[in-house]
């Protein structure tokens, strides 16, 4: 059977859809802005509360040793670093200029993804290192009041917990992030290749 030549353009133009009214669309903009704000606020709030609690402990129990204070500073630094970096990594996306051409836009997205990959890996490593070190220092004052056995058990358990974090949870989280980002990067690259093919 011979198929007659089809007028693609005419066929294409026959597809229409009801236009959502403008008020609905603007409402969506509003909802979107609110949900984005809520998301950021929630993420930052939980970490900020932790930091506030640690500061409260510092103020209320008045640690005697400098190790405790340094420990607290490290823990708070870890939390602050995490908050700042994650927010920065998320906001990178807003830098992609949608009014570029597709080729430039794909380049943009790829650059952003590479930056995100760097930030997320480096920051996660630093976060775990600072946190572990901070906790170890922080505990020293309280452990020094314990019996030898008590102190050994306390440090032993904390040590195991830190090792678990470093050798199991940290690589796991990094792998998960990398897999997600690598998948995206591959897909973006393949789209770029499509354009570069002759």
């Amino acid at each position: 059977m011979e198929t007659p030549d089809i007028d693609f353009k005419e066929l294409w133009a026959s597809q229409n859809t009801e236009q959502p009214n403008l008020a609905d669309l603007l409402q969506r903009v509003d909802r979107y802005k609110k949900s984005r704000r809520r998301h950021t606020v929630l993420a930052n709030l939980s970490l900020s509360i932790t930091a506030a609690f640690i500061l409260f402990v510092w103020y209320y129990y008045q640690p005697q040793l400098v190790t405790t204070k340094v420990g607290i500073v490290f823990i708070i630094a870890a939390i602050a670093l995490y908050i700042i970096a994650i927010n920065k990594s998320r906001s990178l996306f807003r830098q992609a200029d949608e009014s570029n051409n597709n080729q430039q836009y794909l380049n943009n997205l790829l650059e952003i993804k590479a930056k995100q990959q760097f930030i997320e890996t480096t920051v996660l490593n630093s976060y775990f290192a600072l946190l572990s070190f901070g906790i170890a220092l922080y505990m020293y004052e309280y452990a020094s009041h314990m019996t030898m056995v008590g102190a050994a058990v306390t440090y032993g358990i904390t040590g195991i917990w830190i090792l678990l974090n470093w050798f199991y949870l940290r690589p796991l989280q990094i792998r998960k992030q990398q897999a997600r980002l690598n998948g995206l990067i591959d897909k973006l690259k393949s789209m770029q290749d499509q354009l570069n093919q002759e």
Binding site: S99, Y105, L109, G183, K187, L188, M191
Partner: peptide, 18 residues
């Protein structure tokens, strides 16, 4: 052209929501 750029870039962006 400007609107189409935005619309098509937004299409490409869908890759994030696979």
């Amino acid at each position: 052209t400007w609107i189409y750029r935005i619309a098509t870039n937004n299409c490409l962006r869908q890759v994030e929501r696979q």
